[in-house]
Amino acid sequence: MAAVRLEFRNVTRRFAPTRRSEGVTAIEGVSIAVRDREVVSLIGPSGCGKSTLLNLSAGLDGPSVGEVFVDGAKVTGPNSHVAFMLQKDLLLPWRTIRENVEFGLEIRKVPATQRREIALGQLKICHLDGFENHYPHQLSGGMRQRAALARTMATDPSVVLMDEPFSALDAQTKLVLQKDMAQTLSRLGKTCLFITHDLAEAVALSDRVLVMSKRPGRIIEEIAIDLPDRDDPIARRSSEKVTPYLRRLTELLDVAHADV
């Protein structure tokens, strides 16, 4: 069995009440194990604590109860094994695309020539060669998200965290980017926790799908996607075998909705 890259052991995260909001329990008793090279999707109703899971994985936040491990080491703060990518591209507008891709490497003190080489390589993989000296505002939404993907991959993380990275894109761009991402993940052999609310996307891209309940978020179901073509979501989508998975997920989410 492949090594576990990202693991949640019985994690609960509560937020203390503040003057403006009462205390909430975002997630409760969550246990997840994402193995090497695996892509695991996380779906659930909005506000179920998906983003909390992501922050805990990245070490930006700590659990109230339980532990988070990345590559077998307990997460106590931001660490170089993890990189994340959000719905927002978070490109820095004052940096060129290449400089944006280099951002993480720069902070890790990678020498400039090496940085440049890695960045240009990643941009090529993401089909952005020729745009390295453009500024973010000169690129379309899809291209900017590709640049964000390149930046995420540039630091060579062992775990990639994605939070609805394609939800702001139009349907066509979305399909192309899903394919590119799937290929990149597959080629580089990355492990990925993928948060989405798009059921078809979850089925098309993942090895497994985890379904969360409404807040406090718990894992209520785990579904292994037993289909070929994980690196070609367009091919996978066109397969009729996708339908039973979608039906099952729809049912589960309805249950999750009706839960409270």
């Binding site: 922050n55 990245a58 930006l60 931001p78 994340f84 959000l86 927002k88 978070l90 951002f103 902070i107």
Partner: peptide, 13 residues
Amino acid sequence: DRDQINLGRAFNA
């Protein structure tokens, strides 16, 4: 944007 700062933090800035 908090997420922008978090991006930097996630890179260990």
